[in-house]
């Protein structure tokens, strides 16, 4: 019984990260442009990025440096978690419109760097 609860606790530790509070950041896609195009987040912390697609066409949020790739359907919103990250700049694009839909996640060391430019 003790062994079973230990395994359950281990499983809970692995899968419970979503239950912990994380800071949320909003990103809007309109006319194939990301608003804001630069988001500043704190280093070493996991954050939730909520992306609203206000266009009539689907878009794919894509970032090689962030290792993230997610389709956002037309007139829908979705979310992804990013981090914990080292300080630096991480570019992302809308894969279907990479010339216009571009942005950067700026990771800074300062505590509580949740300002959005």
């Amino acid at each position: 019984m003790f062994k079973l609860s230990r395994y359950f606790l281990l499983l809970l530790m692995v899968f419970s990260s979503s239950l912990l509070a994380v800071t949320e950041y909003e990103l809007v896609l309109k006319d194939h442009l990301f608003f804001p195009s630069r988001i500043t987040i704190p280093a070493g912390k996991k954050v939730k990025l909520i992306i609203h697609n206000q266009d009539d066409t689907p878009e794919e949020f894509d970032s090689f440096s962030l290792n993230r790739q997610k389709v956002i359907f037309a007139k829908r919103k979705t979310y992804i978690f990013i981090g914990p990250l080292q300080p630096g700049e991480y570019d992302f694009v809308g894969e279907y419109n990479p010339n216009s839909a571009r942005g950067t996640v700026v990771v800074v060391k300062e505590a509580g760097g949740g300002d959005v430019n």
């Binding site: 692995v14 899968f15 990260s17 979503s18 996991k46 939730k48 090689f64 440096s65 290792n67 993230r68 790739q69 997610k70 979310y79 992804i80 978690f81 990013i82 981090g83 914990p84 990250l85 080292q86």
Partner: peptide
Amino acid sequence: NLLVQVDVISDAAPIWNTQWLVDNE
């Protein structure tokens, strides 16, 4: 990465960066 990005499983930061050697893109 699909599971990590929706927080089904947690993963740490990248352990190395060989972007200078072979760029992902």
